[in-house]
Amino acid sequence: MKKNITQNIGFFLLFACIIATLFFLGTIIYFIFTRGIQIISWEFLTQPPRNAMTEGGVAPVIVGTLYLTLGAMVFAVPLGLACAIYLCEYSPKSIVVNIIRISINNLAGVPSVVFGLFGLAVFVNFLNFGVSILSGSLTLGILALPLIISASQEALVAVPHSIREASLSLGASKWETIKRIVLPTALPGILTGVILSIGRVAGETAPILFTAAAFYKRGYPKSIFSEVMALPYHIYALMTEGTHPDKQKAIAYGCSLILLFLVLFISGIAIYLRQRQRSYHG
């Protein structure tokens, strides 16, 4: 019965692994939730900061994150989708296209701080947009681009070839087939990819460090050329700068909770959608 003893020990270890994983990750959420909830109030969500970031709320910070995320999506979704459509539908199958596919996959794994440097060199300095919402959005957009391209490509490839043929055989042109058959069928998959990348972009800090973020900015951003406060950067800045570490820490807890909630909520929608698609396709 030695065989079964080994099995029991082995299975116990595996069980311990998942319990440990869930425990540690749960701990993070627990701490941030219980401490963060103490500071969150209506005022915290709707007021600008006061008294050198030690009192008041974080409304402009939340708004800043929304602007940056929105800007990134406005830029990345059409471009990424167009790129995926071109690669799946229009491009001839060749070695060049394959290389392009592989490099897109690879770019999805490039460290986000590298994207930040690119944004700094190109948008902030070369194009002279300065440290601004525009620079930050474009940088985040480029970070999201490979994610959106590969998710859209996956969704487009999953559309059966037979219904494209059916559409063409009825006298629909290629574009009509794409617009009326391929895109609607691939839409849930594309949407999932886009939502996941929203979650990712909203939580990214490194790309906006030198392209968009400011620790303190009075009031709400006025144009796309103004610097902006953003939740992830704000958490970092509260913990490393400023003069009232304790009060700032409390605010950082609040910001972390808001960010965590935001990102988990967005990603939750995407994962729910994906789960539903999986079970739909059997």
Binding site: L22, L196, R200, T205, I235, L259, L260, L264, I271
Partner: peptide
């Protein structure tokens, strides 16, 4: 559990960093 694990993969790194600093 699988979706929960996938969801946890999306927690922003700055939140992990913050947790590391304070706890």
């Amino acid at each position: 559990l699988k979706p929960i694990i996938e969801l946890l993969a999306s927690i922003p790194s700055v939140v992990y960093g913050f947790f590391g600093m304070v706890i």
